[in-house]
């Protein structure tokens, strides 16, 4: 797929419409400029523009199938975009493997289904990437990992295997694992939606604590309480487009777009 697409990306990227945020975006840690993505003929992401400042916390919500996951996965290039630009920490995501690897080192990701490595212990899960990618000495890596495990409140599980933990514990390990790489940005893709209600809180608590520490966060979630507490901006996506973008109090009290209003009605009913 790759080669042919890059030419296109660059060609349209430079001639495409210049987004308005461009002016203040020199300080932005993530810049997405008129980005488009297709699955075959299906247009999943339509002309997305977004710029995220260092330390900003953004919540993305929207109905199922609206392209939230796809969008967030484009930011560490688990998915390729075909038009427009994505610039993360001043590195543009292109086909260049070195750039992708550098970006991925700076961007941590937490998945809906945890994706812990079942053949490694919790501690090994956390140390794997620091040891092999950051080339940290084992002892240092383990010490750092223990610190993060303490931060997510499960240092006593360090030598267990993921299969032996509850869902909430696994997700907290996954957060600790991502943090062990000392990322500048954290991406969350519905981190609580595979969890039982009583476990959601323990994960959200960790995320709130993380937000308080000044981490740049992009978070796909339907936890509106979380959005109200920590988000600087809420982004509403529908049909592959960013429909509305507003600070949480405005977003929840005074949504502008009819589609947002409908979505909020539905979600708050439940």
């Amino acid at each position: 797929m790759g080669n042919t697409m890059t030419d296109q990306t660059q060609a349209t990227g430079s001639t495409g419409p210049v987004p308005s945020q461009k002016d203040d975006s020199s300080s932005a840690i993530i810049r997405v400029e008129s980005m488009n993505k297709w699955y075959g003929d299906f247009h999943v992401l339509k002309d997305l523009n977004l710029s995220v400042r260092q330390g900003e916390r953004i919540v993305i919500c929207g109905p199922s199938g609206s392209g939230k996951s796809t969008f967030i996965r484009c930011i560490n290039r688990l998915e390729e975009h075909q038009q427009g630009k994505i610039i993360v920490d001043n590195i543009e995501l292109t086909d260049d493997i070195r750039h992708i690897d550098t970006v991925r080192r700076e961007v941590g990701m937490v998945f809906q289904h945890f994706n812990l490595f079942p053949h490694l212990t919790v501690l090994e899960n956390c140390c794997l990437s620091p040891i092999w990618v950051r080339k940290t000495p084992r002892k240092e890596a383990e010490e750092a990992a223990m610190e993060y495990l303490e931060r997510v409140k499960i240092p006593d599980q360090a030598n267990k295997f993921p299969g032996q933990l509850s869902g909430g514990q696994q997700q907290r390990v996954a957060i600790a694992r991502a943090l062990c790489m000392k990322p500048k940005i954290m991406l969350f893709d519905e981190p609580t939606s595979a969890l039982d209600p009583e476990m959601i809180k323990e994960v959200l608590d960790v995320m709130i604590e993380l937000a308080g520490s000044g981490m740049t966060m992009l978070c796909v979630t339907h936890e509106m309480g979380f959005a109200k507490t920590v988000a600087d901006r809420v982004i509403f996506m529908d049909g592959g487009e960013i429909v509305e973008e507003a600070p949480p109090h405005e977003f929840f009290t005074n949504p502008q777009e009819p589609r947002t209003q409908k979505f909020l009605e539905q979600i708050l009913d439940h």
Binding site: M1, N3, T4, M5, Q8, T12, P17, S34, N36, W38, G40, D41, H43, K46, D47, Q82, Q83, E241, I242
Partner: peptide, 26 residues
């Protein structure tokens, strides 16, 4: 929002592209 672009940049894959992707990718 900007003008909607409904077509992916490459619609049909020519046999040549197919060969480059599946036979001569590296």
């Amino acid at each position: 929002m900007a003008e909607p672009m409904l077509k992916p940049p490459k619609v049909a894959i020519s046999p040549l592209d197919w060969m480059r992707q599946n036979l001569f990718s590296s």
